[in-house]
Write a protein that binds this DNA or RNA. Sequence first.
DNA 1: TAGGTCACG
DNA 2: ACGTACGTGACCTAC
Length: 890
Amino acid sequence: MSNQMDKLVLIDGNSIIFRAFYAIPPLTSSSGLHTNAVLGFTTMLLRVLEEEKPTHILVAFDAGKMTFRHEGYAEYKGGRQKTPPELSEQFPLLKELLKAFSIPQFELPGYEADDIIGTMAKLAEEQGKSAIVVSGDKDMLQLATDRVSVLITRKGVSEVERYTPEAIGEKYGITPAQIIDLKGLMGDASDNIPGVPGVGEKTALKLLQEFGTVENVLEKIEEIKGKLRENIESHMDDARMSKKLATIFREVPLDYSLEDVVWKGYDSAALGVAMRKLEFKTLAERLNLGAADEATKAESAESATRYEVVRVETSGWAGLNEVLAEAEAVLVESYGDNPHQAQGIGIAVVSGDKCHVVEYKLLSSPEASVLREWLENGDKPKVSYDLHRVELVLARSGINLKGQAFDVQLAAYLLDPTEADPSLNGLLQRYKLSSILPDEAVYGKGAKYLVPEGEQLAKHLAAKADAVRRMKPLLAEQVEQLGMNRLYYELEQPLSSVLAGMEKQGIAVNGDALKDLGTEFQRRIEEITKGIYESAGFEFNIGSPKQLGEVLFDRLGLPVYKKTKTGYSTDAEVLERLEPHHEIVRLILHYRQLTKLQSTYIEGLLKEIRSDSGKIHTFYRQTIAATGRLSSQFPNLQNIPIRMEEGRQIRKAFVPSEPGWTILAADYSQIELRVLAHISGDEGLKEAFLNDMDIHTKTAMDVFGVQADQVDGNMRRQAKAVNFGIVYGISSYGLSQNLDISRDQATAFIEQYFQAFPGVRRYMDTIVEQAKRDGYVTTLLERRRYLPEIRHSNFNLRSFAERTAMNTPIQGTAADIIKLAMMRMNEALLERGLRSRMLLQVHDELVFEVPEEELELMRKLVPEVMSNALKLDVPLLAEVSDGNNWYEAK
DNA sequence: TAGGTCACG
DNA sequence: ACGTACGTGACCTAC
């Protein structure tokens, strides 16, 4: 019997599987079937089942290609890319799985999934029931009523946003019924619905808030002015038709009643079989599904191995030796963001059914020698989490970690470098493994941080070690499948130790020199502050953008060129334009510069100099940048000033750590453009580098069509900006902003450039196409970055992804190359028994300190190693320089 | 804690 | 038509 508490869940099958396909990284079963979209769909489904607890459910699919919508408009959904085969093959898998869930599936030739859902929702409503519509398509919002809510997936399919009529009103200022008017006006590129040209979401919403419906807009057209009116007038029929196309048809002749979609839960045994077939092992386990066949039963028993937590504190050291001999994973826990200062907490080693846990303070006890020796033994492989950090923490306890074999954090970074959550629990969730207690739940956070008593701590560390053990085979397999074995095992993994070595070494910084410079900066700041107060006629906090904005724009009445979310923009670009208007502006610009230098570079760096050694130890993060670059923290030594002379002085404080030694720096010349020449294969660009031409001058010659001797400084400057634009993923808008020229002018420059370098245009087109097809781009070393938004219907998101597709292979390959060079340099120094030390990496530059007797050798060796790091179709040139400090090594 | 700003490649 | 150049981290102010 039905009653008022009944709840229908109506799922838009095509929309969700499509979303899932592009949101979930590629995944194949052992037989080579792609399963990522089915997995994503299933995750979403389980979530909805759990949260909504439906009494009725169905999944609707589109049937065939033609629908009644094509009768009136043949181009409906035209221009769509063909469904990739990797997705097509997943439809049958999904349908089979839904059967196992006992969920009915509806489809009807001539109608789309949303029509079926609209019809069923109407039916439910008529019978006084409530319904939940689940889709990735905002068109569905037109179905929302007091009884029907719409869940739209976000972030792929992992989250949903709930829309009620109120929520739609709040967000868009319109009613659900007006969604079709919205579409009628703005159209929908992904369905090839035209709408009215020149009308986007914003304009459409404005029109609807004023006129209510498309019909009313058309009727009262004389109230609209200008270009907008012209556009609407000449596309009235398009608007009417678009609205019609966007309208969900709610009278689909279905031979079913609500009784046919009653859901009483799934049959565990059937679902278990289906899931194991798809190799969703952990999902099946999580749901506690039975009916495993013998082989998979053994396998799941294996991965669910129970382990006994053995605390050294209570059980003694016996047995540790055996566990170490066959250790499957080790976990070294520490507290604190900066690994050079982090406090050791404990170590857990897991093997078979035992996990031994040692509190960190016992690591120095005589009985722990077996553990210390194991950690230092390169023949004993360490599978762990964040080995880079572990190596630094252990080093401060006098332990020289060796045998770094596999790091789940580093591997996960290669599998998806854009994924934000690097925590162990985050990884477990990402790979659908059963999760553990979050660190925060165990330790608390901030001021409340407290390491719990022995037993509780031991359990947590053991759970983490076990988590690493469970995750390792999964990640190792995916690294291999994605063709990143060499990248991982020969580059990234060993590089983490090279980085740790540089960080432990540190760079000597002359604190007195910094202080002297700071005194001088302070003097200038005070003088300028006075000048600013005098000029304004009163005192205020110059460092507050809010107060500064009020002074400049409200009190002094300067023109407002740009606004931020919260008020006036006062950034350097704006200030530079305001300079001619008022003397105060120049002073403010200089004030900004000096206070930046003072707080970030004088005071900031002084705080980081270790009093015992006089050195600064940065920490390179290897798992942050989406392109494969390193980043530097505590402090950041990759953004020490150089462009302005005043700031460049800071570099004089970076000195050799031993008397008589020299700072030597070498940087790649135009590495990104050389990489572009290589991967695009453009003949002209290659030729330019083969002849070692000044690339910006060469670009100026081609773009402006002049001889070398006719290129003046301004032309070269503009050509340089064009080259930057090319590397960043060119857009005429960006270039016009940068050069302060018109968009037409910028467009002309770009067109000239592409005519001169047709291979580059070909590359840009191909890489975007490829990204659209595959969903990712790669570097020369097969580093991968997914770009799910490249197929997004939102212009901004899509354009951003397209520029990223152009830029990432370039920036990422450059990152690959310098990482290779660092490996080779490290080996070269060791092989030759040199005392010189590699200290810093700044994306295209390496900084060393060199004893006098090695200086001549290093001047040749470093650029040679860097040049030969990777063989390209153009030479890689590295330029070397040295001096008494980093300033002089330029 | 978020947003604005600015230092670098 | 839409409105940004690509990638980072640190500091300050205001919420």
